[in-house]
Nucleic acid binder design. Structure first.
Lengths: 338, 338
DNA sequence: TCTTATCAGGAAAGCCTTTTCAGAAAGAGG
DNA sequence: CCTCTTTCTGAAAAGGCTTTCCTGATAAGA
């Protein structure tokens, strides 16, 4: 059926060993033969059988990625970055979607083991110590992206943006524009990774700039438009003195909050300023356009993939190193100078 | 290193054949043995080697997908749908990004051949007769999604939404709301697939509803925000009598156009109505919210994957069948009743 | 010219599973 | 008790490639 290495060898009047050497670019074959064999390979359209190859080399040239939701813009950008590096290196990307469920994440990680991937990337919602433990039992190297593991003992190679610093920069930006009363729309209260870090950043910045932060200025959403709207309602209803600026942990929540504000008769940015996080499409195209922190998830994906290949090349499973991806404050119409 | 079938056989005091039968659920093994072997498999955490397995069965249980841009919302949703079906069937999804370049598409399709995928899905920008020809030479079954092939001779199994009907319905909706002067922001002029179909739909609807469509009412964008804005400028500047409604081929273009209109002092929807296409996040969250045609790309992906599995199960490469995914008109604030 | 070093290319082992074929055990019928 | 099925299990081949170990040849040095 399919043409095998043997067919090529026969056609080219050489042994299969020689053909194999030509395929894999071994130098121990004379230019003359090399050319002849190459010619036959192309003529016969020979494609080495991945299975046979994998069986002997025990390498798949596949790297896997486990994510919660492919259709999420952040994840999709990340994957794009990862894929970019993979293509350059001749690797193939195998995508698994967990739906954010822990059992699934674990199952998929093991599935990747069965597939004999050379390495994997993980973007879990919440990396528990137990999961970290399991990750260490896997036979392939792994890089975390977007989230860091909170387990103290083990260190996994991680690529992440500096959430604390990003939020601090955002607050700094607002303060520099004359804002002192700033409310914060964060992630879920029991969030253990980026949401927590961002809140941490906010508290840190508040202290740094000596801002007064009433309890009611901090509310928890879940990154959706609706939750942003609800958070804004809460801020609006529970505070006699409204903040002059709202800093949300995602563009979508910022926009939800903005919508509520507008519907309540507040003008943006005249009465109240808004700031988001991520710099998604929405931020730029919304009206008024949204000031935000730009995070390049594409870059993050690229970097994560590069780090993974470092591990693969070095034949080690982790370095425990954490790489930070820079962020950028983007000024747009939604923030007014006081 | 890794535990093999032989280790299991030895541990369980049976032959490797028996172990293999247990793994693959062959019934020709007594319950007693079955149980014993199963126990050993679990105890030793044995995972059959994918390569060895593939070598004998010549099946990878992998299906591939080639897309132009992973981070595009439409594509990401499509992939999510595909992935959903694949997971159910125990297949793995291998994602390739072509960047929309024809050579890449072809290269990746061949790469998938090397990977011995059981089938593939393709979402090309422009499926030329040449590409169709090449597709037929591939050894695995293929399903087209989002786009249909225009080649007359060959038929490839395709899953698509009915662009002509969708646009007709959109026009119908506008007409039902009293609009008679409708401008159309389409895709690129030399677009051979969905853009063309949508324009076709518009012309068809115009005839159906006996609308007068001046030449300047039809402009060509490229699906981006900026092009939508530019198209609106063109419509605004080149027509003495402005349309009462704008129908754009994508939400993003509609929003771009809306932005221009607003900046030109037009009120939406009081002075002019807007309608988009896709029902992306933007449409719902934008202000004013955008009436649009909802296309479920997730469903489209699911259906495409299902059709692909039909082909795989039947052992055929194509049926030439075209499946249409239903769409839905979504009324939102951007369209006013005249 | 003879010896030694170098190198190109071939033979064959090994990777791990599935599957066919055949044989053994067990059960049924005479 | 013997023969004929039926059921179960094992031995062995096949699948295509990489890689190690050799052999034979060529080039270099004495």
């Amino acid at each position: 059926m399919a043409v095998t290495i043997e067919d090529v060898a026969q056609e080219a009047q050489v042994s299969i060993a020689t053909v194999s050497r030509v395929i894999n670019g071994s130098k121990a074959v004379s230019p003359k033969l090399q050319k002849r064999v190459q010619g036959v390979i192309e003529k016969t359209n020979f494609k080495p059988n991945t299975f046979a190859r994998g069986l002997t080399t025990n390498k798949s040239n596949i790297i896997g990625i486990v994510v919660a939701d492919i259709s999420n813009w952040v994840i999709a950008s990340l994957i794009k970055g990862i894929n970019h590096v993979c293509q350059e290196r001749g690797y193939t990307l195998l995508v698994c979607e967990s739906g954010g469920e822990k059992e699934n994440e674990l199952r998929l990680l093991q599935h990747l083991e069965e597939q004999r991937v050379c390495g994997a990337l993980l973007t879990a919602v919440d990396i528990t110590p137990e999961l970290v433990q399991r990750i260490f039992e896997l036979p392939y190297p792994m890089v975390l992206a977007t989230q860091e593991a909170t387990d103290g003992k083990h260190k996994i190679t991680t690529v992440i943006h500096d959430n604390v610093k990003a939020i601090t920069d955002a607050v700094n930006f607002l303060v520099a524009n004359g804002h002192r009363r700033i409310a914060f729309i964060g992630g879920p209260e029991n969030d253990y990774s980026s949401g927590r870090k961002r809140l941490e950043g906010f508290m840190h910045a508040a202290e740094l700039f000596e801002l007064e932060v009433p309890e009611n200025y901090i509310v928890h959403g879940n990154f959706t438009f609706e939750s942003g709207r609800d958070c804004m309602r809460k801020i609006y209803e529970e505070n006699v003195e409204l903040p002059t600026a709202i800093l949300a942990c995602s563009d979508l929540m910022a926009i939800g909050a903005m919508s509520f504000a507008r519907n309540s008769g507040l003008r943006v940015p005249d009465d109240i300023s808004f700031m988001g996080f991520d710099d998604s499409d929405l931020a730029m195209y919304f009206h008024p356009s949204l000031s935000t922190i730009r995070i390049s998830y594409f870059d993050e994906g690229e970097q994560a993939a590069k780090n993974l290949f470092h591990l693969i090349d070095a034949g080690i499973k982790t370095t425990g190193e954490i790489t930070y991806i820079p962020h950028q404050v983007i000024r747009r119409a939604s923030v007014r100078r006081l």
